[in-house]
Structure formats: structure tokens, C-alpha cells
Amino acid sequence: MSKITKDMTIGEIIGLHPRHAETLMTFGMGCVACSASQGETLEEAAMVHGIDVDNLLRALNALV
């Protein structure tokens, strides 16, 4: 499985690892199904939602 990076879009992450949608929502990202998720990077989404991208990356990659 591919390692998640902060420059991947939310859409790419969910496409590669569908179960990560739940983790993203747990962190407060309800945008996993919105159209912005197709073009917004993990880093951009984390910034918009006030989430520490490094903590989020650790959680996502722990599941890979």
C-alpha cells in the first residue's frame, strides 16, 4: 500500500484507502464526500479545518 503524503488530494487518499474516510472524519474533516476533496490536498484541507497535518498523517499512515 502507498504511504499517504500531505500533497495528496483527499480524493486520492480515499481512492487508495477507502477506510481512511472514517479517520479523516474523526479528525473533523467532513469534506471527504464534497467536490472540493477532489482537488484539495491533505495539507490544504488540514489548514482550512485547523488540524495539525503531521498528527493526521501519522494516524493515516499507521493504518497503511
Rank of each mutant, 00 (worst) to 15 (best):
residue 2 S to F: 06
residue 2 S to L: 04
residue 3 K to G: 08
residue 4 I to C: 04
residue 4 I to N: 02
residue 4 I to R: 04
residue 4 I to S: 02
residue 4 I to G: 03
residue 5 T to W: 06
residue 5 T to Y: 10
residue 6 K to P: 05
residue 6 K to M: 07
residue 7 D to F: 09
residue 7 D to E: 09
residue 7 D to S: 12
residue 8 M to E: 03
residue 8 M to H: 03
residue 10 I to V: 15
residue 11 G to Q: 07
residue 11 G to N: 05
residue 11 G to T: 00
residue 12 E to L: 01
residue 12 E to T: 00
residue 13 I to P: 03
residue 13 I to H: 03
residue 13 I to A: 04
residue 14 I to P: 00
residue 15 G to I: 00
residue 15 G to C: 05
residue 16 L to T: 01
residue 16 L to G: 05
residue 16 L to P: 00
residue 16 L to V: 00
residue 16 L to R: 02
residue 16 L to H: 03
residue 17 H to W: 00
residue 17 H to P: 01
residue 18 P to S: 12
residue 19 R to P: 01
residue 19 R to I: 01
residue 19 R to M: 07
residue 20 H to A: 00
residue 20 H to Y: 00
residue 20 H to L: 02
residue 21 A to R: 15
residue 21 A to D: 07
residue 23 T to M: 14
residue 23 T to N: 11
residue 23 T to F: 09
residue 23 T to A: 14
residue 24 L to K: 10
residue 24 L to P: 09
residue 24 L to Q: 11
residue 24 L to Y: 15
residue 26 T to R: 15
residue 26 T to N: 14
residue 26 T to G: 14
residue 27 F to D: 05
residue 27 F to P: 04
residue 28 G to L: 15
residue 28 G to T: 06
residue 29 M to H: 10
residue 29 M to P: 06
residue 29 M to W: 12
residue 30 G to A: 09
residue 30 G to N: 13
residue 30 G to Y: 10
residue 30 G to L: 10
residue 31 C to G: 14
residue 31 C to I: 08
residue 31 C to A: 14
residue 32 V to T: 14
residue 33 A to H: 10
residue 33 A to R: 12
residue 33 A to Q: 12
residue 34 C to S: 07
residue 34 C to L: 10
residue 34 C to Q: 08
residue 34 C to I: 08
